[in-house]
Structure formats: structure tokens, C-alpha cells
């Protein structure tokens, strides 16, 4: 005889029940200083919220539980500044503010395109860059662009600050290199940088991308960077594509070779959004399209 636990899905799979009003309880604090915030998130049983548009769904689905939620909304981390050739995005700045900044679309078109691809406007008024990084969804539309831009993650903790490349920061699916008690203060990327983000979805708007491809030309790099999203367990760079793309304006056959090579050795999943074979096909198409979109036109002679 087998006995079943009715209703509560213990495996976190699709049929756990998010009810109209799920039994979610926690206490709430909203520190107004970084020191207080670090103390609060360092307390066992605490989880930080920076927007919460993804985190709260996990509470509803009983994928996480916490005694206390620490809102980062009171911290002075909603800045968008430019210094030393880098754009610094405060971790709790709503995505919508990045999108509406008149210079981001010009200086970092790929970043603008990826931010614009996330949810709808009301969601982007709350969702934040820091939240997106910590949640580290394999299907994130932001991570490929930030990888291609060689973003730096600026982290504060009780024992000081540190900086990490995004590539090092991302560990796996929904897993990042952030110790208990640490918080992301900001993310920085070099600018200006020719860049583009293109994606394919079953439904064009408001969907999870089957594949996302970002390309960017970062100052000092010897080639175009190419990053792929929709890859399990985490978005990755594609060195096999990048090595064909050393010119600022690659030749057509170089782009073709890069597109064909882009997903070499990449293990895509077959899931409910796409098959592995289709994802490989999409990557080759989208790498070419991203480059076509990002490569600056020839200067008029």
C-alpha cells in the first residue's frame, strides 16, 4: 500500500498549489542603512527582497520559506551613474529606470533591448537588476547581455566589499556566489559598447525565451563577445563563436562560421519550451542576427 501526502507537492514540481491566498508568513523589516541591512540578512532565516517579482512566486509555490524578509528598498542603491568609462547600476534600481534613461539605449543598446524584453512595464517598475542577478534564472533575459558586456558585480558584506566578474558570480541554475550576509550593491559594465540582444519565444511578448543571444564589443577585448541564454544550467559565453569575430566589422563568412560554431559543445535541454535540436538551430540563426544588429555601420567615406 502506498500512502500519499495530499495536496502538498514536496518535489517542487509543477503541481504544487499556489492558492488564491497561500499560507505564507514571515516578518518584514526595511533597514535604512547598509550596515543594518547586512546585519539583518546575516541573521539565519532571513532572505533579502529587491523587488520581489520572482521571489514572491517562490514563496507562493512553497519553493522557499523564510522567517524574515529584509527589504532593500530603503537603501541608497537606486543609482545609475557613469564613471571611469563604466555605467554603474544600483542593485535596487527598478529595471524601468534603466530603460527610460535616454543614454542607455544609445550607449548600450543590448542592455536596453534585454531590459525591455523582461515582463511588462508594471513588472519592470518593481523588478531590479540585483534581484535578477541573485535569482539567476537560466532563462533570464538580462544575464546574457551582462555576460557579453563582461559585467562586474559589486558585493558588500559584513567583512568588507568585493568585486566579482559575473561569469564567476553565476554558479548554476538559481545558484550564485553570494555568501550568507552578503548583498549586491551594484553592477557595472563598460560603456559605450556596441551590443545587441535577440531572442526567440513561443509567444513574442511576455514569455520565457527559448534561446537568447547577446553580443557586445567591449573596449579592450580583442573580439566580439557572444553569450547564450536559455542554456542549462546557466547562461554562458561562447568562445567557439568569439574566435571568429576579431574584427570590429567581421566579414560575412566569419559571421557564418561564428553562428555555426556558437553552440558547439553546448548542452541544451529539451523541455516544454523547445527541443534541444531546435535550440541549436535557433542559436545559429540568432547569433548572426544579433551581430547584424550590433555591428556599427561603416563610417561614410
Amino acid at each position: 500500500m502506498r500512502v500519499y501526502l495530499a495536496s502538498v507537492a514536496t518535489d517542487g514540481k509543477a503541481n504544487s498549489h499556489a492558492l488564491a491566498r497561500p499560507p505564507v508568513t514571515f516578518s518584514f523589516v526595511q533597514p535604512t542603512s547598509v550596515e543594518a541591512a547586512l546585519r539583518a540578512v546575516g541573521t539565519p532565516g532571513s532572505v533579502a527582497i529587491a523587488g520581489g517579482t520572482d521571489l514572491l512566486l517562490d514563496f507562493d509555490n512553497q519553493r522557499i520559506a523564510a522567517d524574515r524578509v529584509v527589504s532593500l528598498n530603503g537603501l541608497p542603491w537606486k543609482h545609475l551613474t557613469r564613471a571611469g568609462g563604466r555605467l554603474v547600476v544600483g542593485s535596487t534600481l527598478p529595471l524601468r529606470r534603466i530603460e527610460l534613461d535616454p543614454r542607455v539605449a544609445v550607449d548600450l543598446p543590448g542592455l536596453y533591448q534585454s531590459v525591455h524584453a523582461v515582463g511588462g512595464v508594471p513588472l519592470r517598475h518593481r523588478a531590479t537588476m540585483g534581484g535578477n542577478l541573485v535569482r539567476a534564472s537560466p532563462a533570464s533575459d538580462l544575464l546574457p547581455v551582462l555576460l557579453a558586456l563582461e559585467a562586474t558585480v559589486h558585493i558588500v558584506g559584513a567583512y568588507g566589499s568585493r568585486a566579482s566578474s559575473l561569469d564567476d558570480f553565476l554558479r548554476g541554475s538559481r545558484s550564485v556566489d553570494l555568501a550568507p550576509g552578503e548583498l549586491i550593491e551594484s553592477v557595472s559594465v563598460p560603456y559605450p559598447a556596441p551590443s545587441a540582444y535577440v531572442w526567440q519565444r513561443v509567444r513574442p511578448a511576455k514569455d520565457i525565451s527559448q534561446v537568447g543571444v547577446a553580443v557586445a564589443r567591449v573596449p579592450g577585448a580583442g573580439h566580439w563577445n557572444v553569450a547564450l541564454g536559455g542554456v542549462v544550467p546557466r547562461p554562458i559565453r561562447s568562445p567557439s563563436a568569439e574566435r571568429h569575430l576579431t574584427r570590429l566589422r567581421p566579414k560575412a563568412e566569419e559571421i557564418t562560421r561564428a553562428a555555426e560554431a556558437a553552440s558547439e559543445g553546448v548542452a541544451f535541454a529539451t523541455d516544454r519550451r523547445a527541443s534541444e535540436a531546435y535550440r541549436h538551430l535557433l542559436v545559429s540563426v540568432l547569433v548572426r542576427r544579433a551581430l547584424d544588429k550590433a555591428i556599427p555601420p561603416e563610417a561614410p567615406s
Partner: peptide
């Protein structure tokens, strides 16, 4: 939907459209 996907619960917070289903009142 209560998952941020339909927009039926949209309100303005300081004039900005916001999904009230994914917003903690405390925040």
C-alpha cells in the same frame, strides 16, 4: 493570475504602474 502575468491587479504606486499581486504592502 497572482503571478504577475495578467496585469488585472495593476495600481499606481507614486504614479508608477505596479502589479499589486507581487508587491508586499509593507514595501
Amino acid at each position: 493570475c497572482r503571478t504577475g502575468d495578467c496585469g488585472a491587479c495593476t495600481v499606481l504606486v507614486d504614479g508608477e504602474s505596479t502589479l499589486s499581486c507581487l508587491t508586499l504592502t509593507r514595501e
